[in-house]
């Protein structure tokens, strides 16, 4: 019997609110929102999260894990603190999205699908994001959620990336200080 209560304790209210959306005898419906909840915590869903979500909902961890494989927005591996997902689907490609992606990757010195050496920025080509009239465009996924960036140029994107790097550095310093306070 598993005793982990990490999500249950840290997100008690959120979990309650999620479960209340669905009929009480249909708790399995809550699996997708709970996976998002776990993923926001550290940008991927861990083995322990899977087990705990299974316990909360009374379904097997295999069932939970199969959803992560099926749906592309769930990750079971850490990769990049920020995932920059550039749409290169047909309508965007007709408006220069592929060139945009290639140039952006060249400027960062990586290939599409790779993460920058500092581990912060992953660039990935993705399918249509329902913003086809505003190409080139991408979404940024992070622990804070998901944001759209439309009508982009490579320069815009690079300055956003610099901003993201500063944010991450700021958070690291803050985290460090919190750690020191806790120790001291």
């Amino acid at each position: 019997m598993l005793e982990r209560k990490y999500l249950a304790e840290k997100y008690a209210q959120e979990i309650q609110a999620i479960l209340e959306k669905y009929p009480s005898d249909r708790r399995q419906s809550a699996v997708m929102p709970l996976l998002y909840l776990a993923q926001r915590d550290k940008m991927y869903v861990s083995r322990e999260d899977i087990l705990e979500i299974g316990e909360i909902l009374g379904i097997t961890s295999t069932e939970v894990a199969s959803l992560i494989g099926f749906y592309t927005l769930y990750y079971d591996q850490p990769k990049g603190v920020y995932r920059i997902q550039v749409c290169v689907d047909l309508p965007c490609a007709l408006r220069g999205a592929e060139k945009f992606l290639t140039e952006l990757c060249d400027r960062l010195g990586i290939q599409p699908g790779e993460t920058t050496p500092d581990g912060l920025i992953a660039i990935e080509p993705v399918m249509c994001l329902a913003a086809c009239d505003k190409a080139p465009m991408f979404q940024v996924q992070s622990g804070a959620g998901l944001t759209y960036h439309e009508n982009q140029t490579v320069e815009n994107a690079l300055s956003l990336i610099e901003q993201l790097r500063r944010d991450a550095a700021g958070r690291r310093v803050a985290g460090h200080e919190r750690g020191r306070d806790a120790n001291g």
């Binding site: 047909l90 249509c128 329902a130 913003a131 086809c132």
Partner: peptide, 11 residues
């Protein structure tokens, strides 16, 4: 769900 490439009206 609006996922058809080229569709952005529901949004």
């Amino acid at each position: 769900d609006e996922s058809e490439p080229g569709t952005f009206k529901d949004r």
